[in-house]
Design a protein around this nucleic acid. Structure first.
Lengths: 228, 228
DNA sequence: GCCTGATTTCACAGAATATTAAAAAAAAGA
DNA sequence: TCTTTTTTTTAATATTCTGTGAAATCAGGC
């Protein structure tokens, strides 16, 4: 299993670095963002495993970030709050936060809570799954779900889509895709990839404007996720 | 033995979190659901060890959830009731609840009752058993029960069905099944699996539309459970 | 606007996979 | 041991998927 990626969102840089220090020691990948709008864009793009989100931030505060993120993602979110905010206040607002931690916090506690929330959210149902607006690709169930409906999909197509969607916005050449999806010992025409992309596009067209299977002319293909 | 999984069903999120806190401290896995219909779907899918079920919920109340769950599962259920509901009122309705707790409750009491009900219900006759709508597979009794009738089933077939049904929706390749059901030292043709699946299908066809033994073309087989 | 090479699209043949029936082999029971 | 049941193998059939080449279309450079 790959390292979970934790995104830390806080405008105070020294707090970010402190968290990075402790989280990396526990073998998490850490991404730091210092403002709300960047956070929203990056969560959409990178699909982190968990977000640590400070409430008190200029321009867009943590509440608003949480609310907006919940419109497109169910990534676990832990709120970092000032002293005085009670459980009810933070969790009762129905913004979809998964836990909260009161500042000034004990770093051990943060790590413990991150692990607890991760444990909870990694249920058997979402194992091997990527989700975007109206799209779910699950490689354990071998199931493609478009707009709530399960679409019968041949294995190679599903594996290709999973691979691309798992790494959004990253361009792959046809040869890379043949290596990584078909297996490196496979020798075949790179037209093969085109045909599978075409067949996927038929299944996916017009479903959402949040993402698409894009051609990068002269290079290859990518699963593009829009950042509004 | 794996951690028991407790499902908490309550529309009040802070109560859920409180229960989670205490139950996780006692080394239970906790799943939280905030409404009745999700609860029914998830119980069907995940087969928790025990359900803590609030009666007062919007849309579908706890009584109705209990009644519907009992149509396909014998999972132990503890009802969470408002003050004033007497034992007779709650348990006398014959909806199949196993115990009840009056709100506001003492968390210690909840934990104690959960443990008590679990102890009771882990009796010899539900051990090693999976249940779905009109289907019970028991690996201890080596018994397959379809639509209330016991069906004579050879051991390998039963073991295969048990393995698949115990891990619903997950695809297994033929080789995985040979490893996990026949044993890893077994060397045989993977067509063997097909033949057993065919014979199981004969026994199971048309019994329920809630589940089925699905072929995943190019990959293997899965026991698929529909989420209504 | 025209040329060039890249991409899309299509249809079909052949490859790969799944189903089924039936026979052979193995195991269990009488 | 003989019979019965279960399991495995085999092989024929049915099904679905995959890759290919050729034509059509498109994007970008000149």
């Amino acid at each position: 299993m790959a390292k979970p990626n934790i995104m830390v969102v806080d405008d105070e840089k020294n707090i970010c670095e402190l968290l990075r220090l402790y989280l990396e020691k526990e073998d998490f990948d850490v991404t730091i963002v210092n403002n709300g709008s960047d956070a929203i864009a990056l969560i959409r793009q990178n699909q982190p495993s968990l977000v640590l989100l400070d409430i008190m931030m200029p321009v867009i505060d943590g509440w608003e970030v949480c609310r907006q993120v919940r419109e497109f993602s169910s990534v676990p979110i832990i709120m970092l709050t000032a002293k005085g905010e009670t459980f009810d206040k933070v969790m009762g607002l129905d913004l979809g936060a998964d836990d909260y931690i009161v500042k000034p916090f004990d770093t051990k506690e943060v790590v413990a809570r991150v692990k607890a929330v991760l444990r909870r959210s990694s249920s058997a149902d979402t194992e091997g799954e990527v989700r975007y607006d109206k799209l779910t690709v699950n490689i354990v169930k071998y199931e493609l779900c478009v707009d709530g409906k399960v679409i019968d999909t041949p294995p190679k197509e599903l594996e290709l889509l999973y691979h691309l969607a798992k790494n959004p916005n990253r361009v792959y050449t046809r040869d890379q895709l043949l290596d990584e999806v078909w297996g490196f010992e496979y020798f075949g025409d790179s037209r093969t990839v085109d045909v599978h992309v075409k067949r996927l596009r038929e299944k996916l067209e017009g479903v959402s404007d949040q993402w698409s299977l894009k051609t990068v002319w002269g290079v290859g293909y990518k699963f593009e996720v829009k950042t509004p």
